[in-house]
């Protein structure tokens, strides 16, 4: 596995898309800190960008890279090496490359402009999203035979997580506004890794007060160490769930 990881990472280190991602994040983060006088406000804008952009980049890049390296994956699969080692090496390399790019593009400006707990939480949440959506991207690429269809499914998944899920929750809250449904909505929000990342960061900038009763419940639950641990576990489940399905799929897949 480490051999596949090593050489895939060397390949990814010179990949223009990965370099572009690092520069894009750097440009956006530096730009926001430059135009906003208050770094805390820049952070809030950055949260919205990260929660939308990171899942999109991780999904689409993983899907496209997986399809483009299919013939090479076939060549690896005819070597005396287990399929699980090939997939583990490739997944680890993809996650590492995107995390390093994000560390450079997002982590560096945060350390320079706003070295506090909220910035750290944004970095961690962003890293969690990289892992989750890289795993989802790999699963999509393994399940769909055609590249265009795979990218289409990836964009649909992104759309569902980033926009549709929130819209549905809002509609639910609006429809049942006469009832105390927040205690049920909070766990539902936590099921979406993007929402969870957003909530965790928002709580660190003490924005919960602006989020009304829901904010109070978020604060009550996710404000504690136990709540953060639950959030981390949910994010890990979102990573390991698709990853396990990917391994099962790849083991049986006709290449």
């Amino acid at each position: 596995m480490l051999k596949v990881f090593k050489y895939t990472l060397i390949d990814l280190a010179r990949n223009r898309f990965v370099l572009g991602y690092a520069l894009l994040m750097l440009f956006v983060a530096e730009g926001l800190f430059f135009v906003e006088d208050d770094p805390a406000k820049a952070l809030l804008s950055l949260v919205q960008v990260v929660m939308a952009l990171v899942p999109l980049i991780a999904l689409v890049f993983t899907i496209v890279y997986s399809y483009d390296s299919l013939e090479f994956t076939q060549l690896l699969a005819v070597q005396p090496i287990a399929r699980r080692s090939i997939l583990a090496g490739q997944l680890l390399a993809l996650c590492t490359a995107l995390l390093v790019a994000q560390g450079f593009g997002l982590g560096l400006p945060l350390i320079v402009h706003l070295p506090n707990l909220a910035a750290l939480m944004l970095s961690l949440a962003g890293s969690g999203l990289v892992l989750v959506f890289t795993a989802l991207g790999l699963l999509i690429a393994l399940k769909q035979r055609e590249k265009a269809r795979g990218v289409g499914v990836g964009l649909t998944v992104w759309f569902l997580f980033v926009l549709v899920y929130d819209a549905l929750l809002m509609a639910l809250m609006f429809s049942f506004s006469d009832h105390p449904i927040e205690p049920y909505v909070v766990p539902l929000a936590a099921l979406n890794p993007v929402d969870m990342g957003r909530i965790l960061v928002m709580l660190q900038v003490d924005l919960a007060a602006m989020m009304g009763y829901s904010g109070a419940i978020y604060k009550h639950f996710f404000g504690s160490l136990g709540g953060i641990a639950v959030a981390a576990v949910v994010l890990l489940l979102w990573f390991f769930g698709p990853t396990l399905f990917s391994f099962r799929t790849f083991q049986r897949k006709d290449l």
Binding site: Y7, R14, D68, L70, E71, L75
Partner: peptide, 8 residues
């Protein structure tokens, strides 16, 4: 068909 990692 031979396709290899482009950057290697």
């Amino acid at each position: 068909i031979s396709q290899f990692p482009a950057a290697l």
